[in-house]
Design a protein around this nucleic acid. Structure first.
Lengths: 338, 338
DNA sequence: GATGCTGGTTAAACCGGTTTAAATGGAGGA
DNA sequence: TCCTCCATTTAAACCGGTTTAACCAGCATC
């Protein structure tokens, strides 16, 4: 069981100093090409890979990015967004030898502590800020902590961090127009919690599209993105004196649950009620009837977010925002004529 | 913007040497109590927290655990297991100042590289081995890499690592017995990929329970744990000359998709067909009809796994296996009399 | 009074890299 | 021949902790 080689071993083997090896490895100028070749050959023969820990200490970098996920009720539990998003992040990190540090903040602990820990421990060089909220307190917190960040979608206040955005509005607009074309006029909405930026973005897009057609929502219920919330909101909508003929949900989980609630109430979808979701989660295609929804691309979202954050971390100034192609309408069987 | 204090600052303030501060911090014997108090007070006043990076380098530990998730087809995509599992892991790590490094291996890269990277970079002190497969090659790999591990469920070969187990069999048995009580005799099964230990555990429990009642499965289809696989398997089962009156799926995603397929084929659940899943994912309760399934506790699974791995990492020898309370049957509306 | 212990403390080496200032050596110019 | 200058290369400091060996005062022992 031979110990893992260190930079000193490589230096000795190549007949140069430690410093020279470091220079060669990092492609610094000032070394003769022949020397560089000799060093790289020696490193190769020994199978040397520089120690992350030593590098971390001397350059004061963690070579890792962080993601804090708040898991308050069960908002996260089966969210189809994160797994794919994380996969996208990884696809970038793996090429740069970086790691992803995940922190799930459970109900007890405060989310703020999560960020403080990540920063205080020097675990990460920057964080991805997801599920942005209005007047999000985390932005000031990160500024205070001096931790670079990238926001997923654009915060409403001023933010020193670049934003990676994926516009939910065109997709929402398309859903509403699709329903209008089918002849619906009593369209209700089950929104996400109004604290979230993306929740209100979807809601206002819906309201505006209806307004452009001279309509307003039959009703708006606020859900919490969970299946349980979707059920409750749906029941309230169906109990209205003049129930809607179509319901647009702010995410698929609420929509699928709402679909179940409607069916449990004896309604046939889409004959008696049209239902649309948002996310195009895996199950959307396979429930009965297949769910009309809006598809984003969380993998590319993750890629773009990681790339952008890395530019910030690398010290680039004025990193521009990145705008991803908007979400697309996917029409399935859960929507039909009135 | 004052720099963050180092151990030297604390030492100076307390009027002692760096070494003394280190001793005091780590609660080592050999220091007078008065000195310890003085040092801790000084550290407190300065708000000093030892640098993880420096500690990592000098003690050769990462203070982090790793989890590699393979995301080959889309097997992971909306698996309800991981988010809760990870939350459980975090609940343990956060109390010890450890971090969780997540590595999602996408289709392109080989899973083996994922572990090699994690080990080679010295990012983690140990890993959690999930989705155990028969003759899992990762066990030998981790031995070769010298990376401590804990397996989720017990591998069939010999393994030097402790196992944290949650027996799926009692739950599966309960599902089958429940269906037998309802009068079903033509019970089919949609299994998970036979490479997975937990998939075959569920399958054999099903077969054995039926055998105890003098029956055998009406048919067994192998799915891949995805919704798409669930649909395909269900269609094949329903196309049989004598289709089953009940289908037991190896997980909820396949079951929910199967439910949709059955309904799309014009069947009424549970009148024409009973359906049962496994996991008790969030949507199980809210689809129509509510899905009869088996509930495990992934959060506690994560807790137990992290605790056990930490015992190994801390150098304890002969860490015993941990057995969690078995999964429980949850009866809902998707199962009924023949 | 020299010797031996012992609890308390420190100086210095070490972990494995990066980085800066200084040293080396050979070519070109006076 | 001697001096400069420039391209290479190296020695040493540094990052911020941990750990080992040495040191020192005080006290008991003989």
């Amino acid at each position: 069981m031979s110990k893992r080689p260190t930079i000193a071993d490589v230096a000795q083997r190549a007949g140069v100093s430690k410093g020279a090896v470091s220079f060669a490895l990092n492609g610094r100028p000032g070394l003769a090409q022949a020397t560089v070749d000799k060093i790289l050959a020696a490193a190769d023969e020994l199978g040397w890979r520089p120690s992350n820990r030593a590098r971390s200490l001397s350059v004061s970098k963690a070579f890792a990015l962080g993601l804090v996920i708040t898991r308050d009720p069960a908002v996260l539990s089966s969210d189809p967004f994160f797994p794919a998003f994380i996969a996208g992040v990884e696809s970038v990190l793996s090429t740069r030898g970086q790691a992803l540090v995940l922190q799930v903040v459970t109900a007890g602990e405060s989310e703020e502590d999560g960020y403080r820990r990540l920063a205080g421990d020097g675990r990460v060089d920057g964080v991805l800020l997801s599920d942005l909220r209005h007047d999000d307190p985390r932005i000031d917190l990160l500024v205070e902590l001096g931790l670079p960040a990238v926001t997923l979608n654009r915060p409403d206040g001023t933010s020193p961090f670049p934003a990676v955005t994926l516009d939910d509005r065109p997709g929402t607009r398309a859903v509403v127009e699709h329903l209008l074309e089918l002849g619906h006029t009593r369209i209700a909405h089950v929104a996400g919690p109004s604290a979230f930026v993306h929740a209100t973005a979807r809601s206002t897009a819906l309201v505006e599209t209806l307004a452009a057609a001279g309509l307003e929502p039959a009703a708006v219920e606020v859900g919490d993105f969970t299946a349980a919330g979707g059920i409750a909101a749906t029941r309230r909508l169906l109990a209205l004196p003049k129930p809607p003929t179509a319901i647009v949900y702010a995410n698929d989980r609420m929509a699928i649950a709402g679909l179940g609630a409607a069916q449990a109430a004896g309604l046939t979808v889409p004959d008696d009620l049209s239902v649309a979701g948002f996310d195009d989660s895996e199950l959307a295609e396979y429930v009965h009837p297949g769910l009309t929804t809006v598809r984003a691309d969380p993998f590319r979202f993750g890629e773009a977010a990681a790339q952008t954050l890395n530019r910030v971390v690398d010290g680039e100034s004025d990193v521009p925002d990145v705008e991803l192609p908007p979400a697309q309408l996917v029409v399935r069987r859960s929507t039909g004529p009135v």
